[in-house]
Write a protein that binds this DNA or RNA. Structure first.
Lengths: 251, 251
DNA sequence: ATGTCTTTGTGAACGCGTGCACAAAGATGG
DNA sequence: CCATCTTTGTGCACGCGTTCACAAAGACAT
């Protein structure tokens, strides 16, 4: 997973636990697939398998939404799709701005998963004057100078930050000041925001590092022995065990 | 956060809790920034603030790695950078292949955060013959037919899937069969893999949906009343409360 | 109508993660 | 060498999330 929520200490948002909310989109996707195949009903066991979770967990998750199943039969697919969509707020239109139209920003603008779920890319914003006016994914890029005007003019409440790390916090501040209250951050930085603003972070490099950790464990239980041998105390280690600190650069 | 680990029930990987492992990259980034500013030592309080976590949590996290701090002083920045890097397996070279060179795949290939932490993009693979040979981020794209050869020839153990949803599982199967044991999945699908293979998922659309949920709650506590009124049982609801099921499309 | 069989919904136990609060450790100054 | 002050490392308690296991509920056949 990318990394979890930043702000919000674990507040359950009306009886619905955060962990459940995070799984609802997963269920929704599986249900949508079933709906396309015109499957009328599905059991918790089948749906859980499709979503890759435990069936008891799925039932408990749904129980937070209400009793939408029929014992002995299962859940009505169409009805459940609607209920989850409504619960997630996907029945309304969410205008979104993407700030930072580099490789990643452009990829996001072109990403089908955005437009397909009630999320509408209202504007693309970049600080590079040379980008201004250029169409990306059919939408002309606008300059950062007009950020506030764009946010307020379109009633945007969700912003996506895909800028370099250094630009993220200033951009974030301007977005929040202009009225954005939810931010999806792709920049490798910790954003600080006032209370009431939600930030979710997606960090590609962190995900890889977590994989590397597990990979390392799988690779060498025996090879780890030699590396583990060099465990010195700070005082003894002048500049690192094997003479030099390994080259690690900022993400 | 993107979404968490898929497989692996919560196995702590040698006394080090998963939650801690997930935070190590965060600490590492903050420490690297300090290192660049030539800051010699840092207290748990300062570092925690920079990483956006609780200081007690940070100290406990570090305690799993060993006693690397000095009471009354703090932690030696350089030494800690090295210890965390080593723990995460970042002191070695990890060849990575990216499969699916669309908008996202290209963005990933160009993403600096990959190359900068011991991750080396060993190959780019795409199913489109027209892409073959074209350089992306300075690396020529190779055809899917050669996937096994590429994996085995370069000793690749980490694969990144950035294909459309439909192609993800077949690609995953081939990667695993060829020897890949860690997968970072950007396709909006649940991948099934044999035991011993780690899968982490990054799902852009799910992150937005979670934001939308909280946004909806913030937006309307009062407007929610009218929507909440239409809570029928499946039997009563013929085809959905207000006559029609809202248009929701697959991600 | 009654019995059987399937599947939901949930009570309860357990385990992990978090955060408080404090004692131990060491640095620093006199 | 002793006192003071800072900061680490951790014991402990609490709460969330997960999972098991089962009773209640309803469909369906006879």
């Amino acid at each position: 997973m990318a990394t979890g929520r930043t702000h919000r200490p674990a507040t359950r948002s009306r009886g619905i636990p955060e962990a459940t909310v995070a799984r609802l989109p997963l269920y929704l996707r599986a249900l949508t697939a079933l709906s396309e195949r015109s499957v009328p009903t599905v059991s918790s066991e089948e749906l859980a398998a499709a979503a890759g979770v435990n069936s008891a967990k799925l039932r408990k998750d749904f129980s937070y939404l209400g009793s939408y199943g029929t014992r002995g039969v299962g859940y009505d697919v169409e009805y459940l799709v609607y209920q989850i969509s409504r619960e997630l707020g996907l029945t309304q239109d969410w205008p979104v701005v993407i700030v930072g139209i580099g490789n990643l920003g452009a990829a996001l603008a072109n990403y089908g998963g955005f437009a397909s779920r009630g999320f509408r890319v209202a504007a693309l914003i970049d600080a590079d004057p040379a980008m201004a006016g250029k169409p990306v994914a059919g939408i002309p890029v606008q300059h950062t100078d007009d950020l506030e005007k764009i946010i307020e003019g379109n009633g945007v409440s969700i912003g996506v930050i895909a800028t370099p790390a250094g630009a993220a916090q200033p951009v974030c501040d301007r977005l929040v000041a202009a009225g954005v209250t939810s931010i999806l951050n792709f920049a490798p930085t910790v954003l600080s925001v006032p209370d009431g603003v939600d930030v979710r972070k997606v960090d590609l490099s962190i995900e890889l590092q977590i994989l590397a950790f597990h990979e390392q464990r799988k690779a060498g239980e025996e090879a780890a022995a030699e590396t583990a041998a060099v465990t010195l105390t700070p005082k003894e280690a002048g500049k690192g065990p094997d003479g030099d600190v390994p080259a690690v650069m900022p993400a």
